[in-house]
Design a protein around this nucleic acid. Structure first.
Lengths: 128, 128
DNA sequence: TATAAAATAAGAATTACTATCAGTTATGGT
DNA sequence: ACCATAACTGATAGTAATTCTTATTTTATA
């Protein structure tokens, strides 16, 4: 991977998020910094960064993928009301990989745990 | 939900699978029984059956959704070589929901656990 | 600094799925 | 059995997210 100004902007912008944006929502933030950047460039780079293990692509949430700059072991939760994606600590499922490899005989290369429901903020806000 | 011949064919055909097909692959099997059935009818019914808890839609696997007639608690594994989707028993992550609700304060309505890697058959077959 | 490899912008194309709609079928009351 | 109406169907157009194509520009290396 060679250096590119666009890729640097993309990665830095992603790192500003604590929740995990879709490509579209990241795109609007990126365009504030470089209005000329192309949507195809964003997708190309997100895929490249994910392929190289620098970021993580989160599938299975809604219609579109979300992107996460934290590549350490953890899971995700999407709130059905506010649509934000939160992290869940991996200790809710200890030894998940080893247990699953042992019980299935499969070689596990990747895994994802995705929860959906209502986040704390939305539960506490009075209006339904 | 009223009765429909098409829906019965769709559900019965899905039940013939031990692995979990995409809409497209289910469609080719269904057309052997009823060549006139429309792809829109298939998607419409799969969604209806899933909304009514009769089947389960599995997202987050590849580009397209897979469908599972087993609605009991269990997880999934997709083989990167043969692309088949297998079941994983839920006891690899005991008390997952309760633990996650306790540690996050979120209300969890749904969850999915998806593994990918190489299945037993593909590991054992000599050719890479 | 020449050159080859990698990256870009812009827009067309693709994929998986959903919406629309006119015609058909199922169901419940009479 | 007959009818009203609600649910369902096939065909096809439409959509959203993402990928592909191509001509041009950047970056890394000799």
């Amino acid at each position: 991977m060679n250096y590119s100004r666009q890729r640097e902007i993309i990665l830095n912008t992603l790192k500003e998020y604590v929740v995990h944006p879709t490509a579209e929502s990241l795109y609007s933030k990126i365009k504030e910094k470089d209005p000329k950047i192309s949507l195809a460039t964003l997708y190309r780079n997100l895929n490249q960064l994910a392929d190289n293990g620098i970021i993580k692509k989160i599938d299975g949430l809604e219609d579109s993928a979300h992107y996460d700059h934290n590549t350490g072991e953890h899971y995700h939760f999407i709130c059905k009301k506010c649509k934000r994606v939160f992290d869940v600590k991996p200790d809710v499922a200890p030894d998940l990989i080893r247990k699953t490899e042992d019980s299935t005989g499969f070689l596990i290369e990747n895994h994802d745990v995705v929860f959906s429901g209502v986040c704390k903020d939305c539960r506490e806000s009075v209006s339904n």
